[in-house]
């Protein structure tokens, strides 16, 4: 019996479920015992029921699809821009040195503050979303690519060069493969940022769909808060799942890399 309990506590799944259930129960109890007024904040069970209802609501599913579509397109555009740019900056130091002050100034500008400005500039809703995502998610990919190139084994590069390979060839055969794990990490971080920005853009500018739009629409109802919290639960789960997929993919593709760094640690 005790042995079984021990084994159960070794399983991340069992522990995770216990943790989640405990937190939800505590929140439910806080509402039921009157620690948090249910007028001010809905009960956990109410929210979960609402969230379950949303999963069967075709209108909400269409919103999720809209958000997801904008996210995917934005992320693709970001990868298409940031990776080549990162490779350029990483392999031609003078360009990097020249652009650094500009990058260091642009990077800290809060992406949320960019949305009103971008609203003025981009005509289509999807354009706007992609543009905002592009702005905010470029940085992790760009910076990881530049850092990754710096970590490339100089001996390998030198070896290829002595064999008469040109700079592009060296980039393709040595630098890119050894930078790939860094780029992948950057893309994973960018994916999380992109999802946040997709929803934020829908929330802060007009549009015809998306989880953010659902949250705006919920303001019309006296039960709006309940709907909003339920939508937020789905937003969180969506983030969780996409992140999980990226982590899983990274582990599968770059097994050799984790093995190598694991060995050096």
């Amino acid at each position: 019996m005790r042995l079984n309990a021990r084994r159960a506590l070794d399983s991340p799944l069992v522990c995770g479920v216990i943790g989640v259930v405990a937190l939800l129960s505590a929140a439910e109890a806080a509402g039921r015992l009157g620690l948090i007024s249910t007028v001010q904040f809905p009960l956990t069970s109410t929210v979960l029921l609402e969230a379950a209802g949303l999963a069967a609501d075709p209108a909400f599913l269409a919103d999720v699809a809209t958000t997801f579509g904008g996210w995917a397109l934005g992320l693709l555009a970001t990868v298409a821009v940031a990776v080549p740019l990162g490779l350029l900056l990483g392999s031609v130091p003078p360009i990097e040195a020249a652009l650094r002050p500009v990058i260091e100034f642009l990077r800290p500008i809060p992406s949320v503050a960019i949305i009103p400005l971008a609203t003025f500039m981009f005509s289509g809703r999807l354009d706007l979303k992609v543009a905002v995502i592009l702005y905010a998610s470029t940085w992790p990919i760009l910076i990881n690519t530049v850092y990754g190139l710096r970590e490339v084994d100089p001996v390998a590069k030198e070896t290829l060069r002595t064999f008469g390979f040109g700079p592009l060839s060296v980039l393709w055969r040595v630098s890119l493969p050894s930078t790939a794990p860094f780029i992948a990490t950057g893309v994973r971080v960018a994916a999380a940022i992109a999802l946040i920005l997709a929803i934020s853009t829908e929330l802060l500018s007009s549009g015809a769909g998306g989880i953010g739009n659902f949250i705006v629409l919920a303001e019309s109802s006296p039960e709006g808060l309940r709907m909003q919290v339920a939508a937020i639960v789905w937003a969180g789960l969506l983030g969780l799942v996409t992140n999980g997929v990226f982590v899983w993919g990274e582990r599968r593709i770059f097994r050799w890399h984790t093995a190598r760094t694991g060995a050096t640690q």
Partner: peptide
């Protein structure tokens, strides 16, 4: 085609 907006002020540029 209706587009749901968050506030009149934010939509004037549109």
């Amino acid at each position: 085609k209706p587009q749901i907006i968050q506030g009149g002020a934010a939509a004037v540029p549109d």
